[in-house]
Amino acid sequence: MVTVINSDYCKGCNLCVVTCPVKVYKEGDKPSSRGYFVPKIVNVEKCMDYKRKKGEKKKCELCVLVCPDQAISWSNE
């Protein structure tokens, strides 16, 4: 399971950077083909380890819920 940002949808608002409790995202520095600064995924392993509650292996998915452009999703790679 890996986090993916769809750069076709992302408008670079960086709300994922604010929301993520374990700082998986970092503000982007290169514009995408549509001219937006898509955030980078820097600490993906932290997300893998993060458990919302003890013993529960569920992703918190705050970034997925907050992302206003439906750009964040999970991939099984």
Partner: peptide
């Protein structure tokens, strides 16, 4: 718009 709460 980018960052609009409607998407959320």
């Amino acid at each position: 718009c980018p960052g609009c709460g409607i998407g959320t």
